[in-house]
């Protein structure tokens, strides 16, 4: 297993080394793409000065706030629509219509509504996070095996207890998938949102660096986005391992 893991790291490391060698050999002009070592150096410099931490902190705050608002709304409405027929009839049609719009196309409208400061960024993240969580919560609840609900009924469980013991745990895998997609949408929303009249954040840092032709900082921003995606994926995997431990046996067989 570990041998395989090392083998999978081979190509990324080889690509980095080739990139470094090509930069040093003069094959890639530094004005177009700096060497990875230069980017790392820049990262170290900005981290020590505290600039990087500040930008990163602002970006993370926006992502967390937007995810919390949009995600909570998505899960709440998805649950209402999934569990209650009236909720389904009232909530689902408008959401299904709205999800056809790419949410980033709403930027001009959102600017008019909430202005160009923090609320714009948070609103965009919330919009991005809402749809995947709504859709997957809804689908997860709908896909719960009706026979299990029936068996719980024969065990004397009330409607509320059936929701708690059968429907919600049964929809958890789908909900976690929704969370994964919501986090990806949150980063995407931030990339766009922080390029509109921001004073801080990773996106702003990259925009500003481009103005001054600091390509190393631009590439550093890309690295940070990549690492953020990687980190959120690792955290989610850990959460899934704990919350969905009951599926371990399924994987083994």
């Amino acid at each position: 297993m570990t041998a395989r893991r090392w083998r999978r790291a081979l190509t990324p490391v080889a690509v980095l080394l080739a990139w470094e060698a090509a930069s040093r050999g003069g094959l890639i002009p530094p004005a177009k793409l700096p060497a990875p070592s230069t980017v790392l150096e820049t990262g170290w410099r900005l981290a020590r000065s505290g600039d990087l931490g500040e930008h990163l902190g602002d970006s993370l705050t926006r992502a967390a706030l937007g995810l919390a608002i949009g995600g909570a709304l998505g899960v709440l409405l998805g649950t209402v629509a999934g569990l209650i027929r009236l909720g389904d009839d009232l909530v689902d049609p408008p959401v299904q219509m709205a999800r056809m719009l790419p949410h980033l196309a709403l930027v001009p409208l959102v600017i008019v509504w909430v202005g160009i400061d923090e609320s714009l960024k948070v609103t965009l993240v919330a919009l991005g996070a809402f749809f995947p969580l709504y859709l997957n919560t809804y689908a997860g609840i709908r896909d719960v095996d009706e026979r299990l609900v029936e068996a719980a009924r024969t065990c004397g469980l009330s409607t509320l207890a059936r929701v708690r013991h059968v429907v919600l745990p049964g929809s958890l895998p789908s909900l976690l998938l929704g969370l994964r997609l919501a986090i990806a949408a949150a980063w995407l929303s931030l990339v766009v949102g922080e390029q509109v009249a921001a004073q801080s954040g990773i996106g702003f840092m990259m925009m500003e660096a481009r103005e001054f032709s600091q390509i190393d900082v631009v590439v550093l921003g890309l690295f940070v986005y990549g690492l953020l995606g990687l980190a959120s994926d690792l955290i989610l995997r850990a959460v899934e391992r704990r919350a969905l431990a009951w599926r371990v046996g399924l994987k083994a067989s």
Partner: peptide, 23 residues
């Protein structure tokens, strides 16, 4: 009365003891 179905219909996310003690 209690019911046993053709399929076991145990809740996959509950351990055996929790399934038996359901409700």
């Amino acid at each position: 009365s209690a019911v046993v179905f053709q399929e076991h219909r145990l809740l996959p996310w509950k351990r055996v003891a929790a399934n038996v003690g359901l409700g």
